[in-house]
Design a protein around this nucleic acid. Structure first.
Lengths: 220, 220
DNA sequence: TGAAACAGAATTGTTGACGATCTTCCTAAC
DNA sequence: GTTAGGAAGATCGTCAACAATTCTGTTTCA
């Protein structure tokens, strides 16, 4: 279906930050630039509003929703408990092939950090989290976390730029993976919670380099 | 705006279970029975699909999504960790008026249970949880929990019917409220988690009275 | 100069009709 | 009796036009 493909394209553009926050989304403009009918644009905007990615005011059009720093902290906290739940379940059903995948993710992230490739390390970080979630097979947690991630991509990878966080990040991830592979659900959950609450605290402390909407876009 | 009111009406009808699960939702039918244009019905269905309340198949109409027992367990687990997060924050910012409201909720539930009014106790239960969430002021957790509740209302209050759960429920709720009022975040979170994970376990054990889609509808 | 009122443009919201696609049922051939 | 084929009905998806509302720029008056 062409409509769904176009919807994904528009969604990606918003999530990736190609469209500036608070910028107006005029239906006619999107219609032309994404080559879809205005009706399709309308349904896409309704879905995006329900997903929390944009806000629509009556007769005033849609804007991409601006996520404040405080809200970003809330989102990471919610991720912390949900991903904790997920890895707890993952630790209960881990097998050899899953263990291998996790070890590979971890090794890759460690290599990239040693080379100083923060961009690559961020991607590896995302891969590791995604792999853990996939192995958990907790569909509900997965769905919620995915939605949360979409809303806060701009904040997603900034924390690794904080001096000292990258080393801590590797240690924390290692603890998580070890606990999951060893089949210790409680430890896995606590490790994941500690990890993400640390990230939230770092974000809350505001010791973040660069501007949010300009400098970090596309770089992270 | 009339459209939003109609949307809420349709949403309520689905959430309350007035429309049977897996029943077909034809746009034209809804259009007549709810006295709204087909366009309005369309937007409402799109929103409801994004909320996870219905599924829409191309050219085959919409159905209210059937939530399996396994999925209901997942939903309660997710609620457990999210409400845990919320009460943790609530315990950090509780004041005298909030404490009073919580004590009132608890007292009411206890009274109703002593009288044997399970229906009323269920409502009081919901009130207590809602009050706790409101006091937490954690907008993100609140939003997610609200969405989860909508998807699993049919399972929401069944657990209190399990022999012995009602007494346990009161004890668990008392522990939560005590910890929040005393300003002990960790204890509050653990108490809430224990409470809801107990509910999840009871549900998982399958020791539930009555059928899901017939007997319990409207009774709980 | 500044503010209020007005007109025009721009944008969203709504409606109705038409086409596309799926389902169902009937018929006919084997 | 069973199955393949097709026609009719039902339903969703799309489109264009119109109505309602908001925004913007200009004019006028104090």
């Amino acid at each position: 279906m062409a409509t769904n493909a176009n919807y994904d394209a528009l969604r990606e553009a918003i999530v990736r930050g190609d469209i500036a926050p608070n910028a107006r989304l005029v239906e006619a403009d999107i219609s032309t630039s994404f080559q879809m009918s205005r009706g399709a644009v309308r349904t896409a905007l309704i879905r995006l509003e329900q997903e929390g990615l944009i806000v629509r005011e009556p007769h005033r059009g849609a804007r991409v929703r601006h996520v404040s720093d405080a809200e970003a902290v809330e989102i990471i906290q919610a991720r912390a408990v949900l991903e904790g739940l997920a890895v707890r379940q993952a630790a209960g059903r881990i097998d050899e092939s899953g263990s291998e995948r996790l070890r590979a993710c971890l090794a890759r992230q460690r290599e990239l950090l040693e080379v100083g490739d923060l961009l690559g390390a961020s991607d590896a970080n995302a891969d590791l989290h995604a792999t853990l979630l996939e192995l958990s097979e907790h569909a509900t947690a997965l769905r919620l976390i995915h939605a949360l991630n979409s809303q806060s991509v701009r904040y997603q990878y900034r924390t690794i730029l904080i001096p000292g966080r990258s080393a801590a990040s590797v240690a924390e991830h290692t603890a998580i993976v070890d606990a999951v592979i060893a089949g210790r659900p409680i430890d896995a959950e606590n490790a994941m919670r500690d990890h993400l609450f640390n990230v939230a605290e770092a974000l809350q402390r505001g010791s973040l380099p660069g501007g949010i909407d300009t400098a970090s876009r596309g770089v992270l």
